[in-house]
Design a protein around this nucleic acid. Structure first.
Lengths: 258, 258
DNA sequence: GGAATAGTGTCTGTGAGACAATATAAT
DNA sequence: ATTATATTGTCTCACAGACACTATTCC
């Protein structure tokens, strides 16, 4: 192959190149409100934002200071944007195996006043246990969870309002049309726990109804009953546990009932 | 706001920046084989590839020469990757209003031997009329349609094998779970034309069966019967026409029948 | 009339959704 | 016993899928 020769003639400087390439992450978590004993949870889908400091680490004035923003940073030239997202998030949270999905690119000229900077946007799902850990740490003041209803009313940095709006759209879709909901749940879960997750993004009456949903869950091909194990964490009565089966599900809209 | 001051202190050179930012497009089209009169079409989903020339426009040896590749090019600093895709494609095909969707970013270190080059990947849907136009033009030798079954067996440039595989996955999903199929169809279409499009990506018996599908299409909320108009292009008997209604459809997998 | 596609009549089985009743265990 | 959640019994209605039949129009 003559790639080597061709490469010698290639002048990398011929094109105007971006001034930076960042990886940004919309971190979603679900918090269970008033988690009394023997109660099914009431859940809320939240997004984690950080408040940009007035000064950066070198003492210079920070861009878009004091605004809320999604976490992120520059991608290094020996990693992918996805790896950068994973690295930053796992460093930050000390949690491994976090579910991350790339969902968009933000590259509108002028989106970042520092120059031509391309943002590779991801969403991540972290368990709600992380918040308590994070809050207990030192600089917890600059980090906060917002509900997806209120987050778009904030004063957000850069084009993060658009990014977050898109992320909410994408995760809503994914929760209902894929099995990502499993990342919000323990390995084994009850019907009411899965139901609570789905209720954060839908009003579908078939999901809202307890009886319907507890029946339906048994017939879903991607969910399996865990034999011989029960829990009482959502009810005084022992409750069946279920688990997700690894499976790609595509259900055509053309064959559904309406 | 103090952004101006902050900007003055910001040193853009601090970070290693990418060597290039490209926009690449997987162009899909559907060709109707043996399109006899009064016959419903038999369709095949195809992807358009270009053969990379041995020499570039300046007479230098080209990188990845003589391999098949998806069309694309460098993004300019006054446009988005999406706009670049649209521009390149519309320039090339002379068709406006093409459906384009961004679906992924390819940024693995080493994916392009010329340097750290980030590819923003899109898929596009162009009507099958384009092929005939394009074939009639001058340098038609370097452009060809491949079926999605055979395309992955080709010798493809860069990481385009992965990009194409992902694109096929994404368009399959979108065809079944959204209303993008409309971009493969005329404004008004028969049930058998829509069915033929869907059959390119699914074996679902409910879609394969003529009677079932012709009944089902009447009850889909995002499809409307066109009153008072018929066609005989798929049958000797006059056939009802339908059209898509603009609508976001999300049908949860948790409420479907299996 | 023959051929080919579109569309309907009808039956059967399954399951969704509603309502009511029952099961279970902490308190 | 009370209470809250989980689960099942049962009924009804709608529809998916199958099969057979009818409709239309070009040849």
């Amino acid at each position: 192959m003559s790639n080597k020769q061709a490469l010698k003639q290639y002048d990398i400087k011929k094109y105007r190149t971006p001034d930076g390439y960042t990886s940004d992450i919309c971190v979603f978590t679900i918090i269970s409100e008033k988690n009394e004993a023997y109660k099914p949870p009431t859940m809320d889908l939240m997004i984690m934002l950080i408040k940009r400091a007035a000064l950066d680490s070198e003492g210079n004035m920070n861009i878009e200071a004091n605004k809320w923003a999604i976490p992120g940073g520059f991608v290094q030239d020996n990693e992918t944007g996805f790896q950068a997202a994973k690295r930053e998030l796992e460093e930050e949270t000390n949690i491994s195996g976090i579910h991350i999905k790339q969902f968009g690119v933000y590259d509108k000229p002028g989106r970042d006043p520092r120059g031509w900077i391309i943002s590779n946007a991801h969403y991540a799902i972290v368990p709600d246990t992380y918040l308590s850990l994070r809050k207990a740490q030192d600089d917890a003041a600059d980090i906060e969870l917002f509900s997806i209803k209120e987050v778009l009313n904030l004063n957000l940095a850069f084009d993060h309002k658009q990014i977050i709006a898109d992320a909410i759209q994408v995760i809503t879709n994914d929760l209902l049309q894929t099995t990502v909901a499993k990342n919000f749940l323990p390995e084994n879960f009850t019907y009411s726990e899965l139901q609570a997750v789905l209720k954060t993004v839908t009003n579908d009456p078939a999901i809202l109804s307890d009886q319907s949903f507890s029946r339906k869950i048994k017939s879903l091909p991607f969910i399996q009953e865990v034999q011989g194990k029960t829990t009482t964490r959502t009810s005084k009565r022992a409750t069946k546990l279920y688990r997700f089966i690894e499976m790609d599900v595509i259900k055509p809209i053309y064959t559904a009932r309406y």
